[in-house]
């Protein structure tokens, strides 16, 4: 087991290195290179540029620059200063983190709860009207563009009915306006959770149906266990595994936020910060978010693999090695959020 853990984490190393090379290449291939924003300023002379390059270490050979950059970014988590605001990127990220965690946490909580519930009910009532209705809802949830749903929700609930604010986030400060705070949260969290739960509830439903076909369920029923115990103690445990892997794989987005939803609802989270950075060609900020997101994804993919092995003893380390991990991993298709 320990050997497996070590090997599994070791497998993440080349991935991280490749990510870092790609990110570094991005920084230098970007239009204008790392000093693109500064060199566009007509007041900056060629000597200024040379001085800036020297200050940032950009006159050194590329491999050396890469090593410096790697040490700075990946070992010290120092992403440098934003080209636009001049503040450290890590500080900007930390500032946006609470709003991101709040929105994504709420959406995740709703999606997990409802997803598991809907999936369970749909599986138990298989082939009935309820199953069909849930199936239609989740297919619609996977087909609908999140931003469109957001715009329509704003039109109905804010512009027409005037019930909820159209966007933004109220600070929980001196006023302690909890209700107002929640009113801002409701729409984006609900819409975001729909995108997640439509996928997760399907995994749950299929997982349960598959579990019901298992011999151990027949055994449990045959030995006279109540249906409640069969479903909740025996079948559900088995069915939760694929859902769990998919959910764990999505956990990194809790930190990186949802670009589209945050943009539609003017939510001051990480996703929107990324988007603003993109619009202003603020490459340090963009790369900061991308690198953090990648590292989190690598981490949680590994955790997901290990978790599924811990929960399901049938998945042996040996099988993992042969399948190179990727075989058990699922790409949860869903709308970009």
């Amino acid at each position: 087991m320990t050997a497996f853990l070590v090997r599994r984490f070791a497998r993440a190393v080349p991935t991280v290195i490749l990510i870092s090379v790609a990110a570094f290449a991005c920084l230098h291939l970007a239009p204008g290179g790392p000093v693109g924003v500064i060199s566009g300023n007509p007041k900056v002379t060629e000597t200024d540029l040379a001085r800036i390059r020297e200050n940032f270490g950009l006159d050194k050979p590329l491999p050396l620059q890469y090593l410096y950059w790697f040490r700075q970014v990946f070992l010290r988590f120092d992403f440098g200063k934003s080209y636009v605001t001049g503040r450290p990127v890590s500080e900007m990220i930390l500032q946006r983190l609470p709003a991101t965690l709040e929105l994504m946490g709420a959406a995740f909580a709703i999606a997990v709860l409802l997803g598991v519930m809907i999936g369970t009910v749909a599986a138990l009532k298989r082939g009935t009207l309820i199953d069909d209705v849930f199936s239609i809802i989740s297919t619609v949830g996977m087909s609908v563009p999140v931003f469109w749903l957001g715009l329509m929700a704003i039109t109905v609930f804010s512009l027409k009915l005037g019930l909820l604010p159209a966007g933004g986030r109220s600070e929980l400060g001196a006023g302690k306006d909890v209700i107002g705070h929640l009113r801002h949260l409701v729409l984006p969290a609900a819409i975001l959770s729909l995108a997640y739960l439509s996928v997760w509830s399907r995994y749950m439903r299929v997982g349960l149906l598959e579990a019901f076909r298992g011999d151990f369920i027949r055994t449990a029923r045959a030995k006279g266990l109540g249906e409640g115990i069969v479903v909740f103690k025996h079948a559900l445990r088995n069915a939760v595994l694929p859902v769990l892997t998919v959910v764990v794989m999505q956990v990194p987005t809790i930190f990186t936020g949802a670009v589209i939803t945050e943009t539609v609802f003017s939510w001051p989270g990480m996703g929107r910060m990324f988007y603003e950075g993109l619009q202003r060609h603020d490459y340090t900020r963009i790369l900061g978010v991308v690198v953090i997101a990648s590292l989190l994804i690598v981490l949680f993919n590994t955790i997901g693999d290990v978790l599924s092995m811990v929960i399901d003893p049938r998945i042996s380390p040996h099988r993992f090695e042969r399948g190179a991990g990727v075989c058990t991993r699922k790409t949860a298709a869903g709308a970009p959020v």
Binding site: R11, P14, T15, L18, I19, A22, C26, P252, T256, V259, F274, Y275, L278, I286, V289, V290, A293, S294, I297, V298, N301, A324, G325, V326, R329, T331, P336
Partner: peptide
């Protein structure tokens, strides 16, 4: 390895970039 790498990048952010 390539599949692993591509599954480890935040695809939508990179797409946007």
């Amino acid at each position: 390895g390539a599949v692993d790498l591509f599954l480890s990048i935040p695809v939508f952010l990179v797409l946007l970039l």
